[in-house]
Design a protein around this nucleic acid. Structure first.
Lengths: 274, 274
DNA sequence: GCATGTGTTCGACTATATCGAACACTGTTT
DNA sequence: AAACAGTGTTCGATATAGTCGAACACATGC
Protein backbone atom coordinates (compact mmCIF):
# COMPACT_ATOMS: atom_id res chain seq x y z
CA UNK A 1 0.00 0.00 0.00
CA UNK A 2 2.91 2.32 0.66
CA UNK A 3 4.26 4.35 -2.23
CA UNK A 4 8.00 4.57 -1.79
CA UNK A 5 9.27 8.08 -2.20
CA UNK A 6 11.31 8.15 -5.44
CA UNK A 7 15.10 8.35 -5.06
CA UNK A 8 14.92 8.89 -1.35
CA UNK A 9 13.84 12.52 -1.47
CA UNK A 10 12.83 14.23 1.73
CA UNK A 11 9.68 12.55 2.94
CA UNK A 12 7.24 15.25 3.81
CA UNK A 13 3.73 14.48 4.77
CA UNK A 14 1.41 14.73 1.81
CA UNK A 15 -2.27 13.97 1.72
CA UNK A 16 -2.66 10.87 -0.35
CA UNK A 17 -6.04 11.44 -1.93
CA UNK A 18 -5.27 15.02 -2.88
CA UNK A 19 -2.01 14.03 -4.47
CA UNK A 20 -3.81 11.38 -6.44
CA UNK A 21 -6.45 13.85 -7.52
CA UNK A 22 -3.74 16.21 -8.72
CA UNK A 23 -2.13 13.43 -10.68
CA UNK A 24 -5.43 12.67 -12.33
CA UNK A 25 -5.73 16.27 -13.41
CA UNK A 26 -2.25 16.28 -14.86
CA UNK A 27 -2.93 13.01 -16.60
CA UNK A 28 -6.05 14.41 -18.21
CA UNK A 29 -4.11 17.52 -19.14
CA UNK A 30 -1.10 15.75 -20.56
CA UNK A 31 -2.66 13.21 -22.86
CA UNK A 32 -4.53 15.22 -25.41
CA UNK A 33 -7.68 13.19 -25.31
CA UNK A 34 -10.35 12.15 -22.86
CA UNK A 35 -9.74 9.14 -20.65
CA UNK A 36 -12.02 6.55 -19.12
CA UNK A 37 -12.13 5.48 -15.49
CA UNK A 38 -10.33 2.22 -16.13
CA UNK A 39 -7.56 3.90 -18.08
CA UNK A 40 -7.01 6.44 -15.32
CA UNK A 41 -6.98 3.71 -12.69
CA UNK A 42 -4.47 1.66 -14.65
CA UNK A 43 -2.05 4.48 -15.35
CA UNK A 44 -2.00 5.56 -11.72
CA UNK A 45 -2.06 2.09 -10.25
CA UNK A 46 -5.31 2.60 -8.40
CA UNK A 47 -8.36 0.47 -7.83
CA UNK A 48 -11.09 1.30 -10.29
CA UNK A 49 -13.43 2.27 -7.50
CA UNK A 50 -10.89 4.66 -6.04
CA UNK A 51 -10.27 6.40 -9.33
CA UNK A 52 -13.99 6.67 -9.81
CA UNK A 53 -14.49 8.35 -6.46
CA UNK A 54 -11.75 10.86 -7.16
CA UNK A 55 -13.13 11.64 -10.59
CA UNK A 56 -16.62 12.10 -9.23
CA UNK A 57 -15.38 14.55 -6.65
CA UNK A 58 -13.40 16.51 -9.20
CA UNK A 59 -16.42 16.52 -11.45
CA UNK A 60 -18.60 17.95 -8.70
CA UNK A 61 -16.12 20.81 -8.48
CA UNK A 62 -16.19 21.24 -12.26
CA UNK A 63 -12.48 20.66 -12.39
CA UNK A 64 -13.33 17.67 -14.56
CA UNK A 65 -16.14 17.04 -17.01
CA UNK A 66 -17.68 13.81 -18.13
CA UNK A 67 -18.80 13.28 -21.67
CA UNK A 68 -22.41 12.17 -21.14
CA UNK A 69 -22.30 9.96 -24.21
CA UNK A 70 -19.10 8.00 -23.81
CA UNK A 71 -18.73 8.36 -20.05
CA UNK A 72 -15.14 9.41 -20.48
CA UNK A 73 -13.56 12.29 -18.61
CA UNK A 74 -11.80 15.49 -19.61
CA UNK A 75 -10.69 18.66 -17.83
CA UNK A 76 -13.49 20.99 -16.81
CA UNK A 77 -14.14 24.71 -17.19
CA UNK A 78 -13.16 25.60 -13.63
CA UNK A 79 -9.64 24.68 -14.67
CA UNK A 80 -9.53 27.49 -17.21
CA UNK A 81 -10.83 29.95 -14.69
CA UNK A 82 -8.16 28.97 -12.20
CA UNK A 83 -5.48 29.16 -14.84
CA UNK A 84 -6.60 32.68 -15.56
CA UNK A 85 -6.66 33.50 -11.88
CA UNK A 86 -3.05 32.38 -11.66
CA UNK A 87 -2.16 34.94 -14.31
CA UNK A 88 -4.05 37.67 -12.50
CA UNK A 89 -2.14 37.01 -9.30
CA UNK A 90 1.20 36.69 -11.01
CA UNK A 91 3.44 39.52 -9.97
CA UNK A 92 5.97 39.26 -12.79
CA UNK A 93 3.23 39.14 -15.36
CA UNK A 94 1.38 42.09 -13.89
CA UNK A 95 4.48 44.23 -13.85
CA UNK A 96 5.58 43.13 -17.31
CA UNK A 97 2.44 44.20 -19.15
CA UNK A 98 3.55 47.76 -19.82
CA UNK A 99 7.19 46.88 -20.44
CA UNK A 100 6.25 44.16 -22.88
CA UNK A 101 3.95 46.48 -24.81
CA UNK A 102 6.58 49.13 -25.17
CA UNK A 103 9.23 46.60 -26.12
CA UNK A 104 6.96 45.18 -28.80
CA UNK A 105 6.30 48.52 -30.39
CA UNK A 106 9.88 49.68 -30.02
CA UNK A 107 11.29 46.55 -31.60
CA UNK A 108 8.39 45.82 -33.94
CA UNK A 109 8.52 42.18 -32.89
CA UNK A 110 6.50 39.82 -30.75
CA UNK A 111 7.39 39.77 -27.06
CA UNK A 112 7.19 36.89 -24.61
CA UNK A 113 7.57 36.74 -20.86
CA UNK A 114 8.22 33.41 -19.18
CA UNK A 115 9.02 31.72 -15.90
CA UNK A 116 10.67 28.43 -15.12
CA UNK A 117 8.35 25.54 -14.36
CA UNK A 118 10.09 22.23 -13.89
CA UNK A 119 12.49 22.05 -16.79
CA UNK A 120 10.26 24.07 -19.07
CA UNK A 121 9.63 27.73 -19.57
CA UNK A 122 6.01 28.65 -19.05
CA UNK A 123 4.87 31.62 -21.11
CA UNK A 124 2.94 33.99 -18.86
CA UNK A 125 2.62 36.90 -21.24
CA UNK A 126 2.72 37.35 -24.98
CA UNK A 127 2.37 40.47 -27.05
CA UNK A 128 1.80 40.01 -30.75
CA UNK A 129 4.11 41.52 -33.27
CA UNK A 130 2.53 44.87 -34.17
CA UNK A 131 1.56 44.08 -37.73
CA UNK A 132 -1.54 42.53 -39.23
CA UNK A 133 -0.24 38.98 -39.50
CA UNK A 134 -2.17 36.13 -37.93
CA UNK A 135 -0.44 34.93 -34.80
CA UNK A 136 -1.36 32.36 -32.23
CA UNK A 137 -1.44 33.18 -28.56
CA UNK A 138 1.18 31.30 -26.63
CA UNK A 139 0.27 32.15 -23.06
CA UNK A 140 0.16 28.92 -21.09
CA UNK A 141 2.45 27.08 -23.45
CA UNK A 142 5.62 25.54 -22.09
CA UNK A 143 8.88 25.23 -23.95
CA UNK A 144 11.94 23.15 -22.99
CA UNK A 145 14.26 25.60 -21.28
CA UNK A 146 17.30 24.73 -23.37
CA UNK A 147 15.50 25.45 -26.63
CA UNK A 148 14.56 29.06 -25.99
CA UNK A 149 16.38 32.23 -25.10
CA UNK A 150 14.04 32.83 -22.19
CA UNK A 151 15.08 29.58 -20.60
CA UNK A 152 18.78 30.16 -21.08
CA UNK A 153 18.52 33.66 -19.68
CA UNK A 154 16.86 32.35 -16.54
CA UNK A 155 19.14 29.33 -16.17
CA UNK A 156 22.32 31.35 -16.52
CA UNK A 157 21.62 33.19 -13.28
CA UNK A 158 20.25 30.30 -11.26
CA UNK A 159 22.04 28.95 -8.16
CA UNK A 160 24.57 26.30 -9.16
CA UNK A 161 22.60 23.36 -7.82
CA UNK A 162 19.47 24.30 -9.69
CA UNK A 163 21.33 24.94 -12.93
CA UNK A 164 23.03 21.58 -12.63
CA UNK A 165 19.77 19.74 -12.28
CA UNK A 166 18.45 21.54 -15.33
CA UNK A 167 21.49 20.57 -17.36
CA UNK A 168 21.20 16.96 -16.29
CA UNK A 169 17.51 16.50 -16.95
CA UNK A 170 16.77 14.99 -20.35
CA UNK A 171 17.58 17.50 -23.05
CA UNK A 172 15.55 16.57 -26.09
CA UNK A 173 16.18 18.10 -29.52
CA UNK A 174 13.36 20.03 -31.20
CA UNK A 175 15.15 20.97 -34.41
CA UNK A 176 18.44 20.07 -35.98
CA UNK A 177 20.04 23.04 -34.25
CA UNK A 178 18.89 22.35 -30.72
CA UNK A 179 21.85 22.04 -28.36
CA UNK A 180 21.44 18.96 -26.20
CA UNK A 181 24.96 18.40 -24.91
CA UNK A 182 25.16 19.50 -21.27
CA UNK A 183 28.80 20.56 -21.54
CA UNK A 184 28.43 22.92 -24.51
CA UNK A 185 25.18 24.19 -23.08
CA UNK A 186 26.89 24.99 -19.82
CA UNK A 187 29.54 26.95 -21.67
CA UNK A 188 26.95 28.97 -23.51
CA UNK A 189 25.25 29.72 -20.20
CA UNK A 190 28.52 31.15 -18.94
CA UNK A 191 28.59 33.41 -21.98
CA UNK A 192 25.03 34.44 -21.32
CA UNK A 193 25.88 35.28 -17.73
CA UNK A 194 28.63 37.67 -18.76
CA UNK A 195 26.68 39.18 -21.66
CA UNK A 196 23.45 39.58 -19.74
CA UNK A 197 21.48 38.44 -22.78
CA UNK A 198 20.61 35.05 -24.20
CA UNK A 199 20.24 34.05 -27.81
CA UNK A 200 18.37 31.31 -29.57
CA UNK A 201 18.75 30.64 -33.26
CA UNK A 202 16.25 28.15 -34.69
CA UNK A 203 16.72 25.79 -31.78
CA UNK A 204 12.99 25.45 -31.14
CA UNK A 205 11.37 26.26 -34.49
CA UNK A 206 13.10 26.42 -37.84
CA UNK A 207 13.21 29.99 -39.08
CA UNK A 208 12.58 31.59 -35.72
CA UNK A 209 15.01 33.20 -33.31
CA UNK A 210 14.77 34.84 -29.93
CA UNK A 211 16.66 37.41 -27.88
CA UNK A 212 15.95 37.42 -24.16
CA UNK A 213 17.25 38.80 -20.87
CA UNK A 214 16.63 37.73 -17.28
CA UNK A 215 14.41 39.45 -14.77
CA UNK A 216 15.50 39.60 -11.14
CA UNK A 217 13.61 40.20 -7.95
CA UNK A 218 14.93 42.09 -4.95
CA UNK A 219 16.88 39.07 -3.73
CA UNK A 220 18.75 38.91 -7.01
CA UNK A 221 17.09 35.67 -8.05
CA UNK A 222 16.25 35.22 -11.70
CA UNK A 223 12.51 34.83 -11.48
CA UNK A 224 11.80 34.97 -15.18
CA UNK A 225 12.81 36.44 -18.49
CA UNK A 226 11.54 38.74 -21.21
CA UNK A 227 12.46 38.70 -24.86
CA UNK A 228 11.53 39.17 -28.48
CA UNK A 229 10.79 36.37 -30.92
CA UNK A 230 10.63 36.52 -34.68
CA UNK A 231 12.07 35.43 -38.00
CA UNK A 232 15.83 34.91 -38.10
CA UNK A 233 16.24 37.35 -40.95
CA UNK A 234 15.15 40.21 -38.78
CA UNK A 235 16.57 39.20 -35.39
CA UNK A 236 19.91 37.95 -36.66
CA UNK A 237 20.51 39.60 -40.05
CA UNK A 238 23.62 38.25 -41.79
CA UNK A 239 24.46 36.15 -38.78
CA UNK A 240 24.86 39.15 -36.51
CA UNK A 241 22.41 39.90 -33.74
CA UNK A 242 20.48 43.09 -34.33
CA UNK A 243 22.12 45.68 -32.08
CA UNK A 244 18.92 47.68 -31.84
CA UNK A 245 16.86 44.75 -30.57
CA UNK A 246 19.59 43.65 -28.25
CA UNK A 247 19.72 47.04 -26.60
CA UNK A 248 15.96 47.23 -26.38
CA UNK A 249 15.68 43.85 -24.70
CA UNK A 250 18.48 44.60 -22.29
CA UNK A 251 17.03 47.91 -21.21
CA UNK A 252 13.54 46.49 -20.85
CA UNK A 253 14.73 43.66 -18.66
CA UNK A 254 16.57 46.10 -16.44
CA UNK A 255 13.56 48.31 -16.07
CA UNK A 256 11.33 45.36 -15.31
CA UNK A 257 13.80 44.01 -12.77
CA UNK A 258 13.85 47.36 -11.05
CA UNK A 259 10.06 47.21 -10.87
CA UNK A 260 10.17 43.77 -9.35
CA UNK A 261 12.80 44.61 -6.78
CA UNK A 262 11.45 47.96 -5.76
CA UNK A 263 7.99 46.55 -5.14
CA UNK A 264 9.17 44.47 -2.23
CA UNK A 265 11.92 46.51 -0.66
CA UNK A 266 10.31 49.89 -0.43
CA UNK A 267 6.93 48.99 0.98
CA UNK A 268 5.78 45.78 2.53
CA UNK A 269 2.38 44.94 1.14
CA UNK A 270 1.16 48.30 -0.17
CA UNK A 271 -1.77 46.77 -2.02
CA UNK A 272 -3.15 44.80 0.91
CA UNK A 273 -6.22 46.08 2.64
CA UNK A 274 -5.40 47.24 6.17
CA UNK B 1 -21.94 27.68 2.34
CA UNK B 2 -23.74 24.85 0.62
CA UNK B 3 -24.42 25.24 -3.06
CA UNK B 4 -27.76 23.61 -3.63
CA UNK B 5 -27.62 21.15 -6.49
CA UNK B 6 -29.87 22.56 -9.23
CA UNK B 7 -33.32 20.98 -9.29
CA UNK B 8 -32.57 18.55 -6.50
CA UNK B 9 -29.91 16.46 -8.16
CA UNK B 10 -28.83 13.24 -6.47
CA UNK B 11 -26.28 13.74 -3.72
CA UNK B 12 -23.47 11.25 -4.16
CA UNK B 13 -20.52 10.58 -1.95
CA UNK B 14 -17.58 12.89 -2.51
CA UNK B 15 -14.09 12.57 -1.16
CA UNK B 16 -13.77 15.06 1.62
CA UNK B 17 -10.13 16.04 1.40
CA UNK B 18 -10.22 16.45 -2.36
CA UNK B 19 -13.28 18.63 -2.17
CA UNK B 20 -11.56 20.76 0.41
CA UNK B 21 -8.45 21.01 -1.72
CA UNK B 22 -10.57 22.15 -4.66
CA UNK B 23 -12.23 24.77 -2.52
CA UNK B 24 -8.83 26.04 -1.45
CA UNK B 25 -7.84 26.44 -5.08
CA UNK B 26 -11.01 28.34 -5.87
CA UNK B 27 -10.52 30.50 -2.83
CA UNK B 28 -7.01 31.40 -3.92
CA UNK B 29 -8.29 32.06 -7.43
CA UNK B 30 -11.26 34.16 -6.39
CA UNK B 31 -9.70 36.59 -3.99
CA UNK B 32 -7.21 38.49 -6.04
CA UNK B 33 -4.44 38.29 -3.55
CA UNK B 34 -2.40 35.71 -1.70
CA UNK B 35 -3.76 34.16 1.45
CA UNK B 36 -2.17 32.78 4.59
CA UNK B 37 -2.82 29.42 6.20
CA UNK B 38 -4.94 30.86 8.98
CA UNK B 39 -7.07 32.85 6.60
CA UNK B 40 -7.70 29.81 4.43
CA UNK B 41 -8.55 27.72 7.47
CA UNK B 42 -10.98 30.33 8.76
CA UNK B 43 -12.82 30.86 5.51
CA UNK B 44 -13.31 27.15 4.99
CA UNK B 45 -14.00 26.30 8.59
CA UNK B 46 -11.05 23.95 8.93
CA UNK B 47 -8.48 23.35 11.61
CA UNK B 48 -5.29 25.23 10.88
CA UNK B 49 -3.32 22.02 10.74
CA UNK B 50 -5.69 20.54 8.21
CA UNK B 51 -5.51 23.52 5.92
CA UNK B 52 -1.76 23.43 6.20
CA UNK B 53 -1.59 19.80 5.15
CA UNK B 54 -3.77 20.45 2.14
CA UNK B 55 -1.75 23.47 1.10
CA UNK B 56 1.48 21.55 1.44
CA UNK B 57 0.20 18.80 -0.78
CA UNK B 58 -1.02 21.24 -3.40
CA UNK B 59 2.30 23.01 -3.24
CA UNK B 60 4.18 19.77 -3.86
CA UNK B 61 2.11 19.41 -7.04
CA UNK B 62 2.87 23.01 -8.01
CA UNK B 63 -0.81 23.77 -8.07
CA UNK B 64 -0.04 26.27 -5.35
CA UNK B 65 3.02 28.38 -4.63
CA UNK B 66 4.25 29.81 -1.39
CA UNK B 67 5.83 33.20 -1.22
CA UNK B 68 9.10 32.41 0.55
CA UNK B 69 9.17 35.80 2.21
CA UNK B 70 5.71 36.18 3.67
CA UNK B 71 4.80 32.49 3.80
CA UNK B 72 1.50 33.21 2.12
CA UNK B 73 0.07 31.11 -0.67
CA UNK B 74 -1.04 31.77 -4.24
CA UNK B 75 -1.95 29.65 -7.23
CA UNK B 76 0.94 27.87 -8.91
CA UNK B 77 2.16 27.52 -12.48
CA UNK B 78 0.75 24.04 -12.98
CA UNK B 79 -2.65 25.69 -12.83
CA UNK B 80 -1.95 27.69 -15.95
CA UNK B 81 -0.75 24.63 -17.77
CA UNK B 82 -3.90 22.74 -16.88
CA UNK B 83 -6.07 25.65 -17.90
CA UNK B 84 -4.38 25.60 -21.25
CA UNK B 85 -4.80 21.86 -21.50
CA UNK B 86 -8.52 22.34 -20.96
CA UNK B 87 -8.61 24.60 -23.99
CA UNK B 88 -6.68 22.10 -26.09
CA UNK B 89 -9.16 19.36 -25.27
CA UNK B 90 -12.20 21.54 -25.74
CA UNK B 91 -14.22 20.34 -28.68
CA UNK B 92 -16.25 23.48 -29.26
CA UNK B 93 -13.17 25.64 -29.12
CA UNK B 94 -11.23 23.41 -31.48
CA UNK B 95 -13.99 23.43 -34.04
CA UNK B 96 -14.65 27.14 -33.68
CA UNK B 97 -11.11 28.31 -34.51
CA UNK B 98 -11.65 28.50 -38.26
CA UNK B 99 -15.21 29.78 -38.05
CA UNK B 100 -14.23 32.51 -35.64
CA UNK B 101 -11.37 33.63 -37.84
CA UNK B 102 -13.55 33.89 -40.88
CA UNK B 103 -16.31 35.65 -38.97
CA UNK B 104 -13.82 38.18 -37.65
CA UNK B 105 -12.46 39.05 -41.05
CA UNK B 106 -15.89 39.00 -42.68
CA UNK B 107 -17.40 41.29 -40.08
CA UNK B 108 -14.26 43.28 -39.29
CA UNK B 109 -15.04 42.92 -35.61
CA UNK B 110 -13.73 40.96 -32.65
CA UNK B 111 -15.22 37.50 -32.18
CA UNK B 112 -15.81 35.58 -28.96
CA UNK B 113 -16.83 32.02 -28.30
CA UNK B 114 -18.18 31.07 -24.89
CA UNK B 115 -19.73 28.28 -22.87
CA UNK B 116 -21.89 28.34 -19.79
CA UNK B 117 -20.12 27.78 -16.48
CA UNK B 118 -22.32 28.15 -13.46
CA UNK B 119 -24.22 31.35 -14.10
CA UNK B 120 -21.40 32.90 -16.07
CA UNK B 121 -20.22 32.64 -19.62
CA UNK B 122 -16.65 31.46 -19.88
CA UNK B 123 -14.80 32.77 -22.91
CA UNK B 124 -12.98 29.88 -24.58
CA UNK B 125 -11.89 31.66 -27.73
CA UNK B 126 -11.31 35.22 -28.76
CA UNK B 127 -10.23 36.66 -32.08
CA UNK B 128 -9.12 40.25 -32.10
CA UNK B 129 -10.75 42.77 -34.34
CA UNK B 130 -8.61 42.81 -37.49
CA UNK B 131 -7.15 46.26 -37.10
CA UNK B 132 -4.07 47.52 -35.31
CA UNK B 133 -5.77 48.63 -32.14
CA UNK B 134 -4.55 47.37 -28.79
CA UNK B 135 -6.92 44.77 -27.40
CA UNK B 136 -6.78 42.58 -24.35
CA UNK B 137 -7.21 38.86 -24.59
CA UNK B 138 -10.34 37.69 -22.86
CA UNK B 139 -9.91 33.94 -23.01
CA UNK B 140 -10.55 32.56 -19.54
CA UNK B 141 -12.64 35.51 -18.46
CA UNK B 142 -16.15 34.90 -17.23
CA UNK B 143 -19.07 37.24 -17.73
CA UNK B 144 -22.49 37.12 -16.03
CA UNK B 145 -24.72 35.36 -18.53
CA UNK B 146 -27.45 37.99 -18.46
CA UNK B 147 -25.06 40.77 -19.38
CA UNK B 148 -23.78 39.38 -22.66
CA UNK B 149 -25.31 38.23 -25.91
CA UNK B 150 -23.43 34.94 -25.70
CA UNK B 151 -25.13 34.11 -22.43
CA UNK B 152 -28.61 35.02 -23.67
CA UNK B 153 -28.12 32.99 -26.81
CA UNK B 154 -27.19 29.93 -24.78
CA UNK B 155 -29.86 30.42 -22.14
CA UNK B 156 -32.67 30.86 -24.65
CA UNK B 157 -32.29 27.29 -25.83
CA UNK B 158 -31.64 25.63 -22.49
CA UNK B 159 -34.08 23.12 -20.97
CA UNK B 160 -36.74 24.90 -18.93
CA UNK B 161 -35.42 23.84 -15.54
CA UNK B 162 -31.92 25.04 -16.26
CA UNK B 163 -33.11 28.35 -17.68
CA UNK B 164 -35.25 28.90 -14.62
CA UNK B 165 -32.36 28.42 -12.26
CA UNK B 166 -30.33 30.89 -14.29
CA UNK B 167 -33.10 33.47 -14.12
CA UNK B 168 -33.42 33.01 -10.39
CA UNK B 169 -29.75 33.21 -9.49
CA UNK B 170 -28.67 36.68 -8.41
CA UNK B 171 -28.70 38.99 -11.41
CA UNK B 172 -26.30 41.80 -10.65
CA UNK B 173 -26.16 44.97 -12.75
CA UNK B 174 -22.88 45.86 -14.46
CA UNK B 175 -23.97 49.07 -16.15
CA UNK B 176 -27.06 51.24 -16.02
CA UNK B 177 -28.52 49.27 -18.90
CA UNK B 178 -28.07 45.77 -17.51
CA UNK B 179 -31.40 43.97 -17.31
CA UNK B 180 -31.75 42.34 -13.91
CA UNK B 181 -35.47 41.72 -13.69
CA UNK B 182 -36.14 37.99 -14.23
CA UNK B 183 -39.51 38.59 -15.87
CA UNK B 184 -38.35 41.01 -18.56
CA UNK B 185 -35.25 38.93 -19.09
CA UNK B 186 -37.37 35.86 -19.63
CA UNK B 187 -39.40 37.70 -22.23
CA UNK B 188 -36.31 38.75 -24.09
CA UNK B 189 -35.10 35.16 -24.06
CA UNK B 190 -38.33 34.15 -25.76
CA UNK B 191 -37.61 36.72 -28.44
CA UNK B 192 -34.10 35.40 -28.81
CA UNK B 193 -35.43 31.86 -29.20
CA UNK B 194 -37.64 32.85 -32.13
CA UNK B 195 -35.06 35.12 -33.75
CA UNK B 196 -32.17 32.70 -33.34
CA UNK B 197 -29.89 35.58 -32.39
CA UNK B 198 -29.23 37.45 -29.17
CA UNK B 199 -28.37 41.09 -28.68
CA UNK B 200 -26.62 43.01 -25.99
CA UNK B 201 -26.44 46.77 -25.95
CA UNK B 202 -24.09 48.26 -23.37
CA UNK B 203 -25.32 45.89 -20.70
CA UNK B 204 -21.84 44.78 -19.69
CA UNK B 205 -19.58 47.67 -20.74
CA UNK B 206 -20.69 51.16 -21.67
CA UNK B 207 -20.13 51.76 -25.36
CA UNK B 208 -19.88 48.10 -26.31
CA UNK B 209 -22.47 45.85 -27.90
CA UNK B 210 -22.59 42.22 -28.94
CA UNK B 211 -24.45 40.05 -31.44
CA UNK B 212 -24.37 36.32 -30.77
CA UNK B 213 -26.02 33.06 -31.80
CA UNK B 214 -26.15 29.67 -30.11
CA UNK B 215 -24.17 26.59 -31.06
CA UNK B 216 -25.83 23.19 -30.83
CA UNK B 217 -24.45 19.70 -30.62
CA UNK B 218 -25.99 16.63 -32.22
CA UNK B 219 -28.47 16.25 -29.37
CA UNK B 220 -29.81 19.73 -30.00
CA UNK B 221 -28.41 21.08 -26.74
CA UNK B 222 -27.04 24.60 -26.76
CA UNK B 223 -23.45 23.92 -25.75
CA UNK B 224 -22.15 27.42 -26.36
CA UNK B 225 -22.39 30.52 -28.46
CA UNK B 226 -20.39 32.58 -30.91
CA UNK B 227 -20.69 36.27 -31.59
CA UNK B 228 -19.12 39.57 -32.46
CA UNK B 229 -18.34 42.34 -29.97
CA UNK B 230 -17.54 45.93 -30.68
CA UNK B 231 -18.51 49.58 -30.34
CA UNK B 232 -22.24 50.30 -30.42
CA UNK B 233 -21.85 52.71 -33.31
CA UNK B 234 -20.79 49.92 -35.61
CA UNK B 235 -22.87 47.01 -34.31
CA UNK B 236 -26.09 48.96 -33.80
CA UNK B 237 -25.89 52.03 -36.03
CA UNK B 238 -28.81 54.41 -35.47
CA UNK B 239 -30.43 51.99 -33.06
CA UNK B 240 -30.80 49.28 -35.70
CA UNK B 241 -28.77 46.13 -35.65
CA UNK B 242 -26.38 45.86 -38.55
CA UNK B 243 -28.03 43.45 -40.99
CA UNK B 244 -24.68 42.39 -42.39
CA UNK B 245 -23.24 41.39 -39.04
CA UNK B 246 -26.45 39.72 -38.03
CA UNK B 247 -26.42 37.52 -41.10
CA UNK B 248 -22.76 36.73 -40.66
CA UNK B 249 -23.20 35.67 -37.07
CA UNK B 250 -26.25 33.59 -37.87
CA UNK B 251 -24.58 31.74 -40.71
CA UNK B 252 -21.41 31.15 -38.73
CA UNK B 253 -23.31 29.69 -35.80
CA UNK B 254 -25.18 27.36 -38.15
CA UNK B 255 -22.00 26.17 -39.77
CA UNK B 256 -20.32 25.63 -36.44
CA UNK B 257 -23.33 23.75 -35.11
CA UNK B 258 -23.24 21.49 -38.14
CA UNK B 259 -19.58 20.81 -37.37
CA UNK B 260 -20.38 19.92 -33.78
CA UNK B 261 -23.28 17.64 -34.63
CA UNK B 262 -21.71 15.94 -37.57
CA UNK B 263 -18.61 15.04 -35.62
CA UNK B 264 -20.52 12.75 -33.33
CA UNK B 265 -23.25 11.29 -35.49
CA UNK B 266 -21.32 10.30 -38.55
CA UNK B 267 -18.34 8.59 -37.04
CA UNK B 268 -17.74 7.53 -33.50
CA UNK B 269 -14.27 8.68 -32.55
CA UNK B 270 -12.64 9.39 -35.89
CA UNK B 271 -9.65 11.04 -34.25
CA UNK B 272 -8.87 8.15 -31.92
CA UNK B 273 -6.08 5.81 -32.85
CA UNK B 274 -7.43 2.37 -33.82
C1' DG C 1 9.54 42.73 27.80
C1' DC C 2 5.05 40.90 26.88
C1' DA C 3 1.31 40.14 23.75
C1' DT C 4 -0.36 38.88 19.41
C1' DG C 5 0.32 37.43 15.04
C1' DT C 6 2.09 34.26 11.79
C1' DG C 7 3.37 29.42 9.59
C1' DT C 8 4.61 24.93 11.27
C1' DT C 9 4.93 20.38 13.90
C1' DC C 10 3.21 16.42 16.34
C1' DG C 11 0.39 12.60 18.26
C1' DA C 12 -4.06 10.48 19.41
C1' DC C 13 -8.58 9.30 17.71
C1' DT C 14 -11.87 7.82 14.58
C1' DA C 15 -13.91 9.34 10.78
C1' DT C 16 -12.70 8.44 6.19
C1' DA C 17 -10.76 6.83 1.96
C1' DT C 18 -9.39 2.55 -0.15
C1' DC C 19 -9.90 -1.81 -2.04
C1' DG C 20 -12.02 -5.56 -4.64
C1' DA C 21 -15.73 -7.93 -6.00
C1' DA C 22 -20.21 -7.59 -8.01
C1' DC C 23 -23.44 -4.60 -10.70
C1' DA C 24 -25.88 -2.75 -15.02
C1' DC C 25 -25.18 -1.68 -19.39
C1' DT C 26 -23.38 -1.54 -24.32
C1' DG C 27 -21.56 -3.31 -28.44
C1' DT C 28 -19.18 -7.19 -30.50
C1' DT C 29 -18.31 -11.79 -31.26
C1' DT C 30 -19.52 -16.46 -31.69
C1' DA D 1 -29.50 -15.46 -30.19
C1' DA D 2 -26.60 -16.01 -26.68
C1' DA D 3 -22.30 -15.57 -24.64
C1' DC D 4 -18.46 -12.38 -24.29
C1' DA D 5 -15.52 -8.50 -23.35
C1' DG D 6 -15.61 -4.12 -22.64
C1' DT D 7 -17.24 -0.01 -20.27
C1' DG D 8 -18.76 3.09 -16.04
C1' DT D 9 -20.88 2.40 -11.59
C1' DT D 10 -22.28 0.68 -6.83
C1' DC D 11 -21.49 -1.11 -2.23
C1' DG D 12 -19.74 -2.77 2.22
C1' DA D 13 -15.81 -4.40 5.23
C1' DT D 14 -11.29 -3.04 6.69
C1' DA D 15 -7.60 -0.29 8.59
C1' DT D 16 -5.45 3.11 6.56
C1' DA D 17 -4.94 7.72 6.27
C1' DG D 18 -6.72 12.40 7.30
C1' DT D 19 -8.48 15.38 10.82
C1' DC D 20 -8.35 17.87 14.91
C1' DG D 21 -6.40 20.77 18.58
C1' DA D 22 -2.91 21.98 21.30
C1' DA D 23 1.91 23.25 21.44
C1' DC D 24 5.86 24.90 18.74
C1' DA D 25 9.30 28.50 16.72
C1' DC D 26 9.64 32.69 14.76
C1' DA D 27 8.47 37.42 13.62
C1' DT D 28 6.18 42.08 14.68
C1' DG D 29 4.31 45.72 17.30
C1' DC D 30 2.93 47.65 21.43
Amino acid sequence: MSLATPDGGPRRATIQSVERAARILKLLGAGSWRLGVTEVAERLGLAKGTAYGLLRTLEAQELVEQDPETGKYRLGPAMLQLGNAFLDNHELRARSLLWADSLASRGAEAVRVGVLHGSNVLIVHHVFRPDNSVQILEVGASIPWHACALGKAIAAYLPDAQRRSLLDSGLVPLTGRTVTDPATLEESLATVATAGVALEDQEAIVGEAEIAAPVFDDMGHSVGAIGVVGPVERLVPDGRVSATLLAAVRETSRGLSRDMGAGRVRSRGPAARP
